[in-house]
Design a protein around this nucleic acid. Structure first.
Lengths: 349, 349
DNA sequence: GTGAAAGCGCTAACAA
DNA sequence: TTGTTAGCGCTTTCAC
């Protein structure tokens, strides 16, 4: 039995030819109809859609990609999927992308350059139309692979000098200023900062904004009270330990992210300190969980939805309309203070 | 200028022909070499690999998929990526899959049947070689789409009567028995259970295992003390509220998952109860965070790595060797008790 | 408006 | 052992 014959008789997943045969049109007409070409007459279009429905047909995306050169696949690389900030970001990104007919390729670099290299390679192999690099780190050399192959990318907080690269600027300063102002208004004068790992752009920026905000509030920056942690709960635990060991500790601590703040909450509790009475704590991110810590965490909100939206928009533009006259290459996402229960006036000395 | 000419001159991503030209062999030889066919002489293979390296070439997966019918893409659908259990599962699954040369397609159904339908459709469109359905729910009708198109699937705790469907049986009972035994040994006689939503298979199983374990320990099952929650922190909060409202509450509570337990921890704290002195709490999952709750959560560990491994193995088998003589269709993942600080002897009355 | 046909990059059957 | 060639399912000229 010939292949053609076999195709007709066996129950296989319908292809464009099956549809064309059923609708009694050419495969070109089926293609046009499905892709919304205006050149198809209503009469034929109707027949096509009917066949499509009846066969429960949908196009083979691989074949499509092969000929069109567009995969409608967007990559998203996150620093660590285990940090609650990122699943929330991924979820938003997925929603937006799917709503626009894109699929997403998720991968977690686990802050490991070797893994990141693999991630980039995977993205390249699957021919993504763009990649959102949400690692906040210094991995330009690795990303060159993407840039060299002309894959649009969008980075957070870092500008790459390439026409295919966009940047999302995160305005931490508004949120951090609000936080310091809030603390100062409460009467705090001694404020510490548990920073993120210095290999991350975001960590550096946040720390700088903290220093600036402190000065703007007329408060002194005490070097001892700025401690590099690693954006994990354990890091917060350790960082607070260091602060305690100093003997003279601040009455309030701002943390570079919520996980660190949660670590501080826990360390303070174990040290017999009451938050916020004995110590005020402020986080950054406003992960879902922040609402449920003990006490509920006052934090600087960085909207995952806004970030995901900006990232998608940057990539979509580059992917669909790279020659647009005034392509937006920079996006801004701002932050704001969410006051909950982990901040209060310092105890009288 | 003809296309062929254009191809030669323009800097484009190298394809199999570019490699063949550089290595001075046919494209078939390149293909064979890359796919590890034993039919290629060392001499030619060496030339090919050299060209591959020099051009930084890698095959176009879409073209490969189109002709071979295998995408080397595995889908994973999780109930809710925002529940920390799932990112940890995804991370393991990603690691294993990538190590075996597969790519993964992640999607979160958010416990919404409509979204699940979309997820399934997306998987179908991208021609995945298999799907791990980690939703623990009753969505057989939706999964029919997958089964009908002959896509291998693996489910947790639910058997589908189809040769392409495998099941991962989760042996909660060992962990739950250990938990009850632990509690009983501590002197608890009044033990409640905050169940998961009854639409989930896992929730039902866990609850049944709880009842069984209670009886096995010679303890009475008090219906009032079994409350349906929703596997979220908020749900745990509410569930514990219901328990309190009863007037007469148990001295220990086992929860259907860790998030619920964390909710209980928080609710108990707000109600002025000390855990574990006034109330013992046990979770289930052993998410990373469980170690860091206040107090650290005693919980029943369900290994994400084991689960991911079983899921991958089930799919790999079906995808690569569906005709194997004794295909394993059932996998078992067990649970065990991790004792930390949220359990203690009940306070004397 | 519609259809025929070329070809996207690759694998696999067949020839040599 | 190696090369030639026919498609995989689709989009997209180019004729009509």
């Amino acid at each position: 039995m010939s292949r053609k014959t076999a195709r007709k008789s066996a129950a296989r997943t319908p292809d464009i030819r099956t549809v064309a045969a059923m609708a009694k049109v050419s495969i070109a007409t089926v293609s046009r109809t499905i892709n919304g070409s205006p050149l198809v007459s209503e009469r034929l279009a109707k027949r096509v859609w009917q066949a499509v429905k009846q066969l429960n047909y949908f196009p083979n995306t691989h074949a499509r990609t092969l000929v069109s050169g567009k995969s409608r696949l967007l990559g998203i690389i996150v620093e660590n999927i285990t940090n609650p900030f990122f699943p929330e970001l991924i979820r938003s990104f997925e929603e937006i992308a799917v709503a626009h007919g894109y699929e997403i390729l998720v991968s977690s670099s686990n802050s490991d350059p070797a893994v990141l290299t693999t991630c980039v390679r995977r993205m390249l192999e699957r021919k993504v139309d763009g990649v959102a690099v949400m690692t906040f780190g210094e991995e330009e050399p690795i990303l060159d692979q993407l840039v060299n192959r002309n894959v649009p990318i969008v980075l957070a907080e870092f500008k790459l000098d390439d026409p295919k690269a966009s940047t999302i600027l995160l305005d931490y300063s508004s949120g951090i200023h609000a936080a310091i102002h809030h603390l100062a208004a409460l009467g705090h004068k001694k404020i510490g900062f548990l920073a993120g790992p210095h290999k991350l752009h975001s960590a550096i920026t946040r720390e700088n904004d903290f220093r600036t905000a402190l000065k703007a509030a007329g408060l002194a920056v005490q070097k001892d009270w700025i401690i590099e942690c690693d954006h994990t709960l354990k890091g917060g635990l350790a960082g607070f330990g260091q602060l305690q060991a100093l003997g003279k500790r601040p009455t309030a601590v701002v943390c570079s992210n919520d996980m660190t703040a949660i670590g501080v909450l826990r360390a303070a509790y174990m040290a017999g300190l009451r938050v916020p009475k004995d110590l005020s704590v402020i986080g950054l991110d406003d992960i879902d969980f922040a609402e449920f810590t003990l006490p509920p965490l006052t934090t600087i909100c960085l909207s995952r939805a806004d970030l995901a939206h900006a990232a998608f928009e940057a990539l979509r533009q580059q992917a669909e309309d790279p020659a647009a006259p005034n392509l937006k290459r920079e996006f801004l996402v701002s932050t704001s203070l969410v006051v909950r229960g982990s901040t209060a006036a310092p105890a009288a000395r």
